[in-house]
Write a protein that binds this DNA or RNA. Structure first.
Length: 660
DNA sequence: TACAAGTAAGTTTTT
DNA sequence: CTTACTTGTA
């Protein structure tokens, strides 16, 4: 197809409502106003990266680009929304139509929209991690690999291997050789399991997270019409957090940009923290090779933190083995030194943090401006108890979500078979909940149900031999399926019906804490009110689950803006607070005990860097001197090795003493 | 064949 | 704390 380029009429594009020159520094201005061709922005922490992206979106729209032609791939949907909200505020005029989201959610949207083009069924179900694990387990049982001696890996380990292979562009065999050498003897069975898993997904229209990406890539490279249409729709591509993309995602970016070459990648190699799922921060180094003619722009001025904080973070990252060299300089005067606090044990640490937070609140710092960060989500358990005791309301980000609890997943499974009747994983789950039905019976029923022309409600007519209780509960389920009508009922109504059906099951299975779990389900029903389509609800639950963890019931009556944040460092990326506490800055916790290889240590270092660069005014690092280990009892802890690289005079030392 | 109860072992970070 | 696997009973 020949292209004919229309010239922009002079005079129209010359006048902008926004004073880009005045509101951005030179590097930011250059990034925001370079609209054509490939651009790489290497943006240090706090250097106004989001601001720059926001202004660039505004600039594109002001020069006459339709918002619909702009595609913003960010790390979380929250980041995309935040960006659009700010751009909206800037331009008042409407930015409606800008597409934004994660690679996964974008893949989901376009694969569904163009499903007909490549002869796919309209409905496919997305498997989240634990669904994938369950599916692997089904494949494993089917192959008779569950009756083996104890050496055979469990479902989590298997699913992790398969995923690693996809995300690091390796074969399963290579992954085992590199990362699971002790399983070398099992390779054959593991590969059989993998093949069964792949086949199972294909038969049942199931896509796991990795399939979303591989399918998008393969359709883009294999279906010219699809690639062309997308290329015509999305003519300006922006990718945030580029250092956290893996080679699969980098391929997708290249394929999307191929028709027009307008792609801006923004990132910071020093903040690459997703290597464990295949991200390769070298992507950002090789971007200019991949896109010839790339303009590289570096943002080094920091607007977030005070200089004493930057002195510490610069020292931490200076010891990194490999990186683009840049040293952040603060634009902000003054500031106090970060504080380093050794605590006698974990509970001292918790009490210290809690007490300081209360004092800061007293001084007028809003709780929403304070965060406590940690390496792994269980590190905050003790602190959470302390905060509840002190009546400090908080939200916890990262870690276990309430969507991942068994009871919520059970309810979701009922909804999923409505959207995709072939979703055998969900059927399996539902059937096993019934009294008197175990794996054998479930398998037989599914087999029978899979014959064409059997509606969901036909369950009750299953001819196989079943005991009394099983027959009754199966009929009851059939009754529910007959009533549920996804065409007629709103998602929230469906959820209500399912909960009603599920309540007695829940009471039988979890006698102890049924009321607590029921409250979670009510919470879920409330959440479902926001949706008009069941498909949308299910896709969101898999791709963009609500980020709050289980059990911040305390937060119910506190206002959103009056909550303290507890967060894993991973979930804190891109955010900032007036005061940041980092707890458990001890070797074995941060860096994690499980990440002691050379490359992994480098990533842990970057993670520490990300944690500390979240702070604007106050940074407080603490670690317990004695650690309680379930096996070893109390042992001595050593401060994080990353502190060794920081000259001690950069810290304000503090000693904790108990009141008389 | 289903299930309760008991033992043993694995536990990072996220889409 | 969860889940995987075993054993004993209906």
């Amino acid at each position: 197809m020949a292209t004919y380029t229309l010239k922009r009429s002079p005079g129209v594009a010359e006048r902008f409502r926004i004073d880009y020159r005045g509101e951005l520094n030179d590097a930011q201005y250059q990034a925001a106003t370079t609209l054509q061709g490939p651009v790489l922005v290497v943006a240090g922490a706090g250097s106004g990266k989001t601001r720059t992206l926001v202004y660039r979106v505004a600039r594109l729209v002001e020069t006459g680009v339709s918002p619909r032609a702009i595609l913003l791939l960010t790390f979380t949907r929250r980041a995309a929304q935040e960006m659009l909200r700010r751009a909206e505020g800037l331009l008042e005029g409407t930015l409606e139509g800008v597409t934004g989201g994660t690679f996964h959610s974008f893949a989901n949207t376009v694969l569904r929209r163009y499903a007909k083009l490549f002869g796919w069924p309209e409905q496919f179900t997305i498997l989240d991690r634990s669904d994938s694990e369950d599916t692997v387990q089904l494949a494993r049982v089917r192959l008779g690999l569950d009756k083996k001696e104890r050496r055979f890996p469990r479902k989590q380990a298997l699913a992790a291997m398969f995923s690693t292979a996809v995300n690091k562009a390796l074969t399963v065999t290579e992954v085992i050789e590199r990362e699971y050498p002790h399983l070398a003897t099992e390779i054959e069975d593991i590969l059989r399991c993998y093949a069964a898993y792949v086949e199972y997904k294909q038969e049942r229209n199931l896509l796991d997270y990795d399939d979303l990406l591989t399918q998008l890539r393969d359709r883009l490279s294999g279906e010219p019409e699809f690639a062309n249409r997308l290329g015509q729709v999305f003519r300006y591509l922006m990718v945030d957090e580029y250092q956290d993309t893996n080679s699969l995602q980098a391929d997708i970016v290249a394929l999307l940009a191929r028709p027009h070459g307008n792609v801006m990648a923004v990132g910071d190699d020093a903040q690459s923290i997703y290597g464990f799922r295949g991200a390769n921060f070298k992507n950002i180094m090789t971007f200019p090779d991949r896109f010839p003619g790339t303009q590289v722009i570096t943002l080094e001025e920091n607007y977030r933190s005070t200089q004493p904080i930057l002195d510490v973070t610069n020292a931490i990252i200076a010891a990194a083995a490999e990186r683009y060299s840049k040293t952040l300089r603060s634009r902000r005067a003054g500031g106090v030194r970060p504080v380093l606090v050794p605590a006698p044990d974990e509970n001292f640490q918790s009490r210290f943090v809690c007490q300081r937070i209360l004092e800061l609140a007293e001084e007028g710092i809003p709780l929403a401006e304070i965060a406590v960060l940690f390496r792994s989500s269980f590190h905050s358990f003790d602190l959470e108890l302390e905060l509840v005791r002190a009546g400090v309301p908080f939200v916890k980000r990262g870690g276990f979500k309430f969507l991942e609890t068994t009871h919520v997943k059970d309810v979701l499974a009922h909804l999923r078979v409505l959207a995709n009747p072939r979703d055998a994983v969900s059927w399996h789950r539902i059937l096993l909940l019934l009294e008197g039905i175990g794996p054998r019976a479930a398998e037989a029923i599914l087999e029978w149900m899979s014959e064409p022309g059997r509606p969901r409600a036909a369950l009750g007519e299953f001819p196989g031999a079943l005991r009394g209780a099983a027959l009754i509960s199966l009929r009851r389920l059939a009754g529910l399926m007959a009533t549920l009508d996804p065409e007629e009922r709103r998602p929230a109504e469906l959820v209500g019906q399912v909960i009603e059906h599920y309540q007695p099951i829940l009471e039988r299975l979890h006698r102890e804490d049924a009321p607590k779990r029921l409250r979670d389900l009510e919470q879920f029903a409330v959440l479902a009110e926001r949706y008009r389509s069941l498909g949308r609800l299910l896709a969101d639950m898999a791709l963009e689950p609500p980020s709050d963890s289980v059990g911040d019931v305390l937060a119910v009556d506190a206002r959103e803006d009056e909550l303290l944040t507890l967060s894993t460092v991973h979930s804190a990326k891109g955010l900032e607070w007036h005061t940041v506490f980092v707890i458990w800055v001890a070797d074995g916790r941060f860096p994690s005990l499980y990440s002691l290889d050379e490359e992994e240590i480098e990533e842990e270092r970057r993670l520490m860097y990300v944690a500390c660069t979240r702070a604007k005014e106050n940074l407080v690092l603490s670690y317990p001197l004695a650690v309680h280990d379930r096996v070893l009892g109390f042992t001595m802890a050593r401060p994080s090795r990353f502190l060794d690289d920081v000259p001690s005079q950069l810290f304000e030392p503090v000693t904790l003493v108990e009141a008389e």
